[in-house]
Each structure stands twice: as structure tokens, then as C-alpha cells.
Design a protein around this nucleic acid. Sequence first.
DNA 1: CAGTTACGCTACGGGTCGTAGCGTAAGAAC
DNA 2: GTTCTTACGCTACGACCCGTAGCGTAACTG
Lengths: 209, 209
Amino acid sequence: MLSRSHPKPSRTGRPRSVAADEAILEATRASLVDLGWSKLTMGDVATRAGVAKTTLYRRWAGKNELVVDAVAVLFDELELPDLGSLSADVQAVVLQFAALLERPETQTALMAVVAESTRDEALRTRIRDSIVNRQKHLVLQGRQRAQERGELPVEQDEAKAALTADLIFDVIAGAVVHRALVSAEPVDEDWARRFTLLLLAGLGAAAAG
Amino acid sequence: MLSRSHPKPSRTGRPRSVAADEAILEATRASLVDLGWSKLTMGDVATRAGVAKTTLYRRWAGKNELVVDAVAVLFDELELPDLGSLSADVQAVVLQFAALLERPETQTALMAVVAESTRDEALRTRIRDSIVNRQKHLVLQGRQRAQERGELPVEQDEAKAALTADLIFDVIAGAVVHRALVSAEPVDEDWARRFTLLLLAGLGAAAAG
DNA sequence: CAGTTACGCTACGGGTCGTAGCGTAAGAAC
DNA sequence: GTTCTTACGCTACGACCCGTAGCGTAACTG
């Protein structure tokens, strides 16, 4: 699930403490809540986790990678409910995602690691694998369900369908993040309803055009 | 235009060097390009600008505020062209915004300062005033033009119209930023066209519903 | 048992932070 | 001009964090 730094399946020697692993990630989230991204230090995390600072560096290259892993697990909560209609499903996912973005550890970490990733290809890949693709999967899943329900047509052109899915994903995730973190206004049910209405109306019309 | 730290219009004493002001902001942008947000230091900026480090601290509280001001002026370039149709106008603005996000100094700085702003109310206000509201104005301006052209109805309910404008703004800005910085894929003409189609179709249908 | 790897701990050089102190520079008021 | 006031450059400083090296110990394998 989590990539970590190549644990290199060596059959000999003292094994890495999995308990320490979870303690470190938990401590990282706690430190994010208390101090925020910029004031979080490796030393503080180590102290909170009850491990030596060197142990952190044996597993993670630095703050960036550590925080990505610590936050990534929170995105496991995201699930696509089956509420019977595409509209209801989208709205529910939007609210789930918004709830995630309300948590202080997610707020302060998400934008920061993405900012770092603009100058670090490996970090970008890591974020994509452990966070972004997990969200994108929800979009693909939602489309499939909608197609099974007959709410969306089964597209012929595979390439075009993938482009549309990418577009939808950027619109949903982008809009929610921007609303929550840039505009800093609540993503409540009313907003989610209006957004979903806009999106699905556009999706239907765009598919026809 | 730029707020800066209260220049307190004192009529006496040596005036602050406006040349130094511009040199510092220019040096900040250069440092962002060369080093990126995380490795940018106040000392480096001071050296590049040819001023003492203390001079920076006399005008800006820290790195956050400095970078916001340095990047804010880049957003002055954004203009709403009058291309004759709402669709063409939206598409053009999207491409302009995308071009801004391709610049390395904007990429690395924008997400970082927003991340910081989640824990700093004053910084959030500064960003809103110098960057976000400047973008939002384009949305309001575009709506007005479209209404004058008869492409959009003049809404009665003022409050509802404001909510819709906010929604549109978050969708446009959010989608472009997400595409450019999270998905890290190009915002080219094709993408802008498909996005605009989706948005305007949704806008029309949502207004009807 | 020996071999191998992880751990905790300490200590270190190097870098950045933000500030204090001082002498000097540049305008304003008289 | 002289005096007043504020900005500037420069130096130096304690505080903090970084990332690593070195060492003795712990845990697990064969």
C-alpha cells in the first residue's frame, strides 16, 4: 500500500519495527495539527513517536516524503457510495472530500507537498500514486455505475472517454480544493448541490455537443 | 496597489527607497525561479537585491508576505479580452491563467503560500486582496459582458447571482490549477476548449433548472 | 553459536532565522 | 546651513533545525 523507501526484502537481520512505522506516521499527523507544515520538524516527530531521529531518516528521505505517507492513509476513507443516482453519488463524494479538507492536517499538508512536488519529480510520482490516483479512481467508478444505470452513454472512443474523465476529475477535485482552501469558504450541502447540478448539466450537454 | 507593511505616512525622515522595493521583489522572483519556495532564503534575496537583510525585515514580516507581494504583480497581466462571445472569452482567460501557472516562480510560490495561509489569517487576507480578488473580478466582468451581449440573462436575485459567480470562479480557477499543478498536464487549447464547453453548457442548463 | 540488520543515543559542522547595535545616509523642518 | 527623524548597510549573535557519522546494543536468522 505505502511505498516507503525500498525495504529490500532481506531475509536476515533485525526486522524493521512496524509499530514504529505507524507511531511515526501518527506522530507526523499530530505534529501537522499542532504545528502545521512549516513548523513541523523531523526532530519533533521523532520525539512524539518515541523513536530516534535517525530512524526517521532510515525510512524516509525527508519531510516531504514522510508527510505524503502520513496524509495518504486519510484518503482511504474516500468511498463512492451507491445512492442510486449519479447526482447523489457525486454530491456525496464532494462532501466527503470536503470533510477531508477540513481536517487541519490535510489542509496544511496537501497544498504544501504539491507545491514541493513542482520541483521534485519523484515526489510528484509519489503523490500521484498514493493520493491523486486514489481519487481519480472514484471518478472512473462513478462513471461506470452511471453507465450501468443508463444515466451516461457508453462511449465508443476510448481515448476521448479518458480525456473526459481527466477533465471531470480536475474540475471536481480542483473546484472543491479551491473553494475550501483558496476561497476558504465552507463546502456545505448547498454548495455541493449547486456544483453537482452545474457539472452534470454540463456533462450531459457536452456529451451531446 | 501593494499593501506592504504599514509604510505609516511619516512626512519626516529618510524615505524608503522605492528602487530597493522593486529590486527586492525582482530578486525574490529570481530566487523563486532558481531555488524554489523551500530553498529560498531571506539572506539570498537580500544578496541578489543588493540590500541588507535587515532592510527586508523592515518591510516584510517574513518570507510568506514577501513572496505573496513578489508574485502578486504577475497577476496584473491577466485581462479579459473581448473576443465577441462568452465562450471565446472564457477560453482565452483559461489559457492566460495557465500560462501564468507555467512560470516556475508562480508554480512553486502559489501553492506554498496558500498552504501557509491555512494557518495564518492575515496572510490569507493578503492573498485574497492581492491575488484572488483580482481573478474573481474577471469572472464578474465576463458575466457582465455576456449579459450585455444577451448570452446570459440578467438575474433578479442578487444574492443568488453572487453565489453562482463564486461557484463559477472556484470551478474555473480550481480546475485550471488542479490540471496544471496536481495532474501536472498541459492546459492547452484543446483542454481549454473542452473545459469551456462543459462549463458553459452546465451554466446554461443550471440557470434553467 | 555467529552473522546481519535495525535501533537509540550522542555529537557534530553547516545553514538559516530574526534581532540588536552602531555608524552613516537622505530627506524634512526650522 | 543646522537639527531632527527615519532608513540604510554592516556585523555579530543565540537559537534552532538539518542531515550524518559513529558507536554500542537489540532483534532475528541460519
